[in-house]
Write a protein that binds this DNA or RNA. Structure first.
Lengths: 365, 365
DNA sequence: TTGTAGGCGTTATCAA
DNA sequence: TTGATAACGCCTACAA
């Protein structure tokens, strides 16, 4: 027997209870002594309704406890006013939580609802999420960020507007990215200005995603580091530590940062500053510094990336802030704009600035 | 003119595009040369279908790119297999993100979808979220955690199963809580065993929520502290710092913890250990310790609550772990159990154990 | 083993 | 200014 394609949701279990015996338009209409059409006109504030009729209908709405059935409405109108948000992961790295907040708040402002699906970095879960959303007829889809290029293509093919946020994996749909090179360059300039020359880099290995678009992020961050070091005649591989994520689900965390920093410290190489490619890694760097009895920033300056954990660390972490919330807002805006004026482009590319935030973890040599 | 009650979603904007011209059962039926009934039987794997007919239908499904319309299905069956999750906030405190993950994963395992609505601590947003979910005919509602007792009552009244997680505000629906007294007691025992007697407490002021149920959490945490200190003849108000959240949206954070700890340090009171009522507050305590040139745990032992930030701090924070994921899983389980066996109780109260996690921020005096 | 027909709650068209 | 009626896509008796 052939198996069901993913886009067919497993059948609903048989059940006998009727939970939602919510009154319908018809009930309200009867209570008000009018036709359902009239009630609909009142509720949607559309078309002509006599003032006293309106009052009567509103009373009936109250009396019956009527509530709209968005399912029926969407079935009929083909528009759900819902945006589906596919989140790569929310835990442990809270970055995408901030993106989600941006999407939600912007969408709400334009009377869209946002629904969120957490894929925990797994391509199959991502696929299930896309299918769930499409089965529910969401109007548009946000990937923050996509796991699989194929999945993005699959979503685009379905015809809904799509946007890839922060780390796109293809040219499909809209894309919103961050100027990572610029951000990392500013961080390096800051360290160089403070007199640092022995600056280490700890991050993901560029190219480890196996996708040219997605890899661009780490390439830019490391590239800015390397360029800055070269310009000061001091690029030294002994001060670089790369990790390679085991799988899409795995995000390099504090443990990795701590081990990498310890290995640099143990090697005895001179190091007065560290650029980490995420706040989580930077948190680990600070742990290693602390564990070795040193202090930041007195002994080692540390800079992170993202601005997620930075306000909670000791010392408060200087970091390259990714505009997470704005990323989300922009994604929602692009999508809703496209939905509301049909002719518009479906392939915009937007690059947002990173902001450099100086806190307490950097100081002169 | 009367205004629309909240439960009537604002009307959809007029639009002319038809985004989802997805094939329907009818299209598949035509392609396969059978009736829609037969296609439905194949898709739902229900009733008798000849093997070759099934094959033919499956081919037609593939060929047409058919996908189920969950809206129509739910409209008909009155069951959406969707759980609505109302999240108090996700940022900055990532605690509820973990709860959300628990709900999602458990629900998915029983083929329910979870939709999430972020209310950012605002009662009106919570109300909007409830209405949105009910308008979409979700099968059940999770509050993690509710902002307004009235809103919970409103949700329960609608007839959907409801659960309040971690900090209930009433006896309505199911409730899942954590044994905070037990958790805080273990933390105190740990500190006492290490020889600490000058132990400070920094947290929210018990009673500041203005709701007996919600206030119970902070009362238990502080109560365990006070009882332990009294049992060792050493309760001293000079070592206690309370904050009172300005509003429901506001969560005491690292800034508060840092200020409170500094004030204790500045006062010159002897303090060798601190129990903080959240990891975020504890993060601030560590910042103050670091800023004053002291070290943890050598000079001050620190214990947090939640196990959210603890793995990222320097030193790694000893903490009372709230079983966030399990809280979510249990919530989903309760709800789905109730949905699937109608007769069952709608008012269960479950108390989960807190787990005490010893890391690096505590040491003998 | 397969098909016909009616209805879920809403909106849109067309009359009245 | 209001009302009847026909879809939207699916499910499910009931019939064949």
């Amino acid at each position: 027997m052939a198996t069901l394609p993913l886009c067919l949701k497993p059948n609903l279990p048989d059940r006998d209870i009727d939970l939602h015996s919510t009154p319908t338009l018809k009930d309200v209409a009867e209570a008000a002594g009018v036709a359902t059409t009239t009630v609909a006109r009142v509720i949607n504030d559309k078309g002509y309704v006599a003032e006293d009729t309106r009052e009567r209908v509103m009373k009936a709405v109250e009396a019956t406890g009527y509530r709209v059935n968005s399912l029926a409405r969407t079935l009929k109108s083909n528009r759900s006013n819902v945006i589906g948000h596919l989140l790569r992961s929310t835990d442990p790295n809270p970055f995408f939580v901030k993106v989600a907040r941006g999407v939600e708040e912007y969408a709400r402002g334009r009377s869209y609802t946002t629904l969120t699906y957490n894929m925990q970095g797994a391509a199959e879960a991502e696929r299930r999420g896309i299918d769930t959303f499409l089965n529910w007829r969401v109007d548009a889809l946000v990937f923050s960020t996509p796991v699989s290029e194929d999945n993005v293509a699959y979503a685009v093919k379905s015809g809904v507007p799509v946007v890839q946020v922060e780390r796109p994996r293809s040219e499909a749909g809209h894309r919103i990215t961050v100027k990572n090179y610029q951000g990392a360059s500013r961080a390096m300039r800051h360290l160089l200005d403070l007199g640092h020359r022995s600056i280490a880099y700890i991050g993901e290995e560029p190219g480890s995603q196996g996708n040219a678009f997605a890899d661009y992020v780490e390439e830019e961050r490391f590239g800015a580091y390397r360029d800055a070091k070269k310009n000061h005649g001091a690029f030294d591989e002994a001060l670089v530590r790369f990790t390679r994520p085991q799988s899409a689900e795995h995000i390099p965390g504090a443990g990795y940062g701590a081990r990498a920093m310890s290995s640099i410290l143990d090697a005895g190489t001179k190091v007065t500053a560290v650029l980490a490619s995420s706040d989580m890694i930077a948190a680990g760097v600070l742990q290693a510094v602390h564990a070795s009895g040193l202090r930041s920033p007195e002994d080692v300056s540390v800079i992170g990336f993202d601005d997620t954990l930075s306000p909670y660390l000791s010392p408060l972490l200087t970091t390259v802030r990714l505009p997470a919330q704005k990323l989300g807002e922009t994604a929602a805006k692009l999508l809703i704009d496209q939905l509301e004026k049909p002719g518009s482009k479906a392939n915009k590319l937007i690059e947002l600035d990173a902001e450099f935030v100086v806190r307490d973890s950097t100081a002169p040599v």
